[in-house]
Design a protein around this nucleic acid. Structure first.
Lengths: 282, 282
DNA sequence: CGCGGCGATACCGCACGGGTATCGATGCAG
DNA sequence: CTGCATCGATACCCGTGCGGTATCGCCGCG
């Protein structure tokens, strides 16, 4: 199967509309129609149901969408990592490490220090992203290693080493009555009057319905808490980075958060291995 | 990057010889040379060192070989799984389950029975292969789920569920002096006079040097043991399938063997999920 | 019933992939 | 040192196939 055909199919399958898909691909609609039916002929199976008013996926089409995305990601990863390796000669970064903005800050700092101290350590570029984006970046080669947080991030498909396990705390505006308590339970903060839990974006960038402010990163969230508009349940390591206007209380029944270093299992290059080694020695 | 170019590059990188690679690909040598240098131009980096007498990989080339193989596997998997889904309509197998020949026989039987008993269970095709081949089959889509055995098989990159953990036993010809002992240690069977441990093929099909007969599967191995030409250390579940000419003795310090059901993490189709569910309920 | 939206079809031109012939470099035998 | 064999690169030609424009056929809707 040709990579171009697959890319075309994924575009149509996502848009469910030949015209828009063609526009997104930067080609005209007729060649796209032809490419898709040619792909269907080659696979010997219809991928799309066309009713001249709506386009929908067949079961085979759904499978090809899932598997095809993975294949295109792998292809993009091969290209990006090769380019990066070639450029790594003259001081350009050889490895891209991705982490969630605002998470694992001192762990990340210690890791970079420890790695830089090793002999002939590769140049590491640090990439900070929003929640849920790391897996994508690792899969399509924009990043090579990542710091993920179970159980929030999905580590399926990656090799991992556990680095740190910690409890979670409630983050509240300083002076809030609950901050006088020695510890809390999840139900205590689930429905505080005037202090709802925030809403994080889904993978597609949309927000689920419900109360609570929409947030994109920890900076936004902490500011909203300081303003008395929200509260949050976060790993206890955030405590080192809070101002005086915020207070924390341990939550005894929250899931423990495990920070792991993760990488695509087939691409344990020397540079990645060096980072992993430095991380496990912390 | 085009899939065809990548396939060409992988061929050259594996053969380290343009002529042979072209032959393997079924094209002439000049277009292959052109395709590779075009790929290098597009990536902006040399992938191969040519010295008119030998071809060798650059560092970037080594990366592209590793990542490119993964990408081509993913592409092939997308195609195969789509075809299989389309054919699954009329009683054709919808899922391919792969297991090592001779291993986990009653577990496999129970699994298939339990799965077949579920309502609207998919048709399962069973594929038996040699050691170390399962990962490849799962990656390139010739199989969808597999029974793997830690620590022998590499489960990196797959989602897994543990099914069974067992010890290992020494398999010896009936009547051998050691069969009188209640248990053994690994050193006891490591160097038996006239009964060497067998040699299994590497991933590329070649055998490592050393004493001991070359074997490809359990049938060969057990026959050689019965003939008094070898001994072996195998998971204790083989005991149910041995003739009277073979005897087993537990080995107390051998690694425990864990049987897991494994599948590519992104392709948890309904059919695969059904098999996994049946397996975990055993 | 006419219009508008959408995918399919028809047809054309050119870019690119593949083929053959040949060159240039290099290691090797005599 | 020279002729030869090996191997990748280059030159040139041809046909396929991809992408473009124009248009059709189908269907829902006002």
């Amino acid at each position: 199967m040709e990579a171009r055909e697959l890319q075309y199919f994924v575009a149509v399958a996502e848009e469910l509309h030949f015209g828009r898909a063609a526009q997104r691909l930067g080609i005209a609609q007729p060649p796209l129609s032809r490419a898709i039916s040619q792909l269907e002929r080659r696979l010997g199976a219809p991928l799309l149901e066309r009713t001249s008013r709506a386009v929908s996926l067949t079961e085979a089409g759904a499978v090809l969408l899932r598997e095809g995305r993975a294949a295109l990601d792998a292809l993009a990863a091969a290209e990006r990592r090769t380019r990066r390796t070639a450029l790594a000669a003259d001081g350009r970064p050889a490895v891209v490490l991705v982490s969630k903005a605002g998470a694992s800050r001192e762990l990340l700092a210690k890791l970079l220090d420890a790695h830089a101290a090793e002999p002939d350590a590769a140049v590491v570029e640090v990439l900070l992203c929003g929640p849920g984006e790391q897996e994508r970046l690792l899969r399509d080669g924009r990043a090579d290693v990542g710091l993920l947080h179970r159980p929030f991030d999905d580590t399926a498909g990656f090799d991992t080493e556990e680095l740190l396990s910690e409890g979670q705390v409630a983050v509240l505006p300083a002076g809030h009555p609950l901050t006088a308590r020695p510890h809390l339970r999840l139900v205590d903060v689930a429905d505080l009057p005037g202090l709802p839990l925030p809403r994080w974006p889904d993978l597609d960038g949309t927000y689920p319905d419900g109360p609570g402010p929409q947030v994109r990163d920890n900076v936004q969230l902490l500011q909203l808490i300081a303003l008395g508009r929200a509260c949050a349940v976060l790993p206890e390591s955030v405590r080192g980075h809070l101002g005086e206007d915020l207070a924390t209380v341990p939550i005894v029944d929250a899931a423990r958060v495990t920070t792991v270093i993760a990488w695509p299992p087939h691409s344990r290059s020397r540079a990645v291995a060096g980072l992993v080694r430095a991380a496990t020695r912390l």
